[in-house]
Amino acid sequence: MKNTIQKIWRFYVDGFRGMTLGKTLWLIILVKLFIMFFILRIFFFPNYLNSSAVGEDKEEYVSRELIDRALGDPPSSTPD
């Protein structure tokens, strides 16, 4: 099993060493992933759970939001 894993690892390492255009493409892919998961998350996906619910209220807040959204009711501003 260990020998098979080493063969697979060497196959990919040798293939990556032989790439010329592929390295540039992988760099572009990694930069795009960094932008999507780190930069955009900061600006467009704020953490509403920490701002709206504190402590033990997080579970109730999430369940209330899921029920309200499923029913199409406007979100309630005060806890039940």
Results as ranks from 00 to 15, higher is better:
residue 2 K to S: 05
residue 3 N to Q: 12
residue 4 T to P: 01
residue 6 Q to D: 04
residue 8 I to G: 05
residue 8 I to V: 15
residue 8 I to T: 11
residue 9 W to S: 11
residue 10 R to A: 14
residue 10 R to Q: 15
residue 11 F to V: 06
residue 12 Y to N: 14
residue 12 Y to L: 15
residue 16 F to T: 13
residue 16 F to G: 06
residue 16 F to N: 09
residue 17 R to E: 10
residue 17 R to M: 15
residue 18 G to I: 09
residue 19 M to K: 07
residue 19 M to A: 09
residue 20 T to G: 11
residue 21 L to I: 06
residue 21 L to N: 11
residue 22 G to D: 03
residue 22 G to A: 01
residue 23 K to M: 13
residue 24 T to V: 10
residue 25 L to G: 01
residue 26 W to L: 08
residue 26 W to K: 02
residue 26 W to D: 07
residue 26 W to A: 07
residue 27 L to C: 12
residue 27 L to N: 13
residue 29 I to W: 02
residue 30 L to M: 10
residue 30 L to I: 13
residue 31 V to G: 03
residue 31 V to W: 00
residue 31 V to H: 03
residue 32 K to Y: 11
residue 33 L to M: 10
residue 33 L to R: 12
residue 34 F to N: 10
residue 34 F to E: 08
residue 34 F to Q: 09
residue 36 M to H: 08
residue 37 F to S: 15
residue 38 F to K: 14
residue 38 F to G: 05
residue 38 F to L: 07
residue 39 I to C: 14
residue 39 I to P: 02
residue 41 R to T: 07
residue 44 F to N: 05
residue 45 F to Y: 10
residue 45 F to E: 01
residue 46 P to F: 00
residue 47 N to C: 06
residue 50 N to T: 04
residue 50 N to R: 08
residue 51 S to Y: 00
residue 51 S to Q: 09
residue 53 A to N: 04
residue 55 G to Y: 05
residue 56 E to R: 08
residue 57 D to T: 05
residue 57 D to H: 14
residue 58 K to E: 06
residue 58 K to M: 04
residue 59 E to W: 13
residue 59 E to V: 11
residue 59 E to N: 09
residue 59 E to I: 06
residue 61 Y to E: 01
residue 61 Y to N: 00
residue 62 V to G: 03
residue 63 S to C: 11
residue 63 S to T: 07
residue 64 R to V: 13
residue 64 R to Q: 09
residue 64 R to Y: 10
residue 66 L to Y: 15
residue 66 L to C: 13
residue 67 I to C: 02
residue 67 I to R: 06
residue 69 R to W: 00
residue 69 R to E: 03
residue 70 A to C: 06
residue 70 A to H: 12
residue 71 L to E: 15
residue 71 L to M: 14
residue 72 G to H: 04
residue 72 G to K: 06
residue 73 D to C: 03
residue 74 P to N: 06
residue 75 P to H: 05
residue 75 P to E: 12
residue 76 S to V: 04
residue 77 S to V: 14
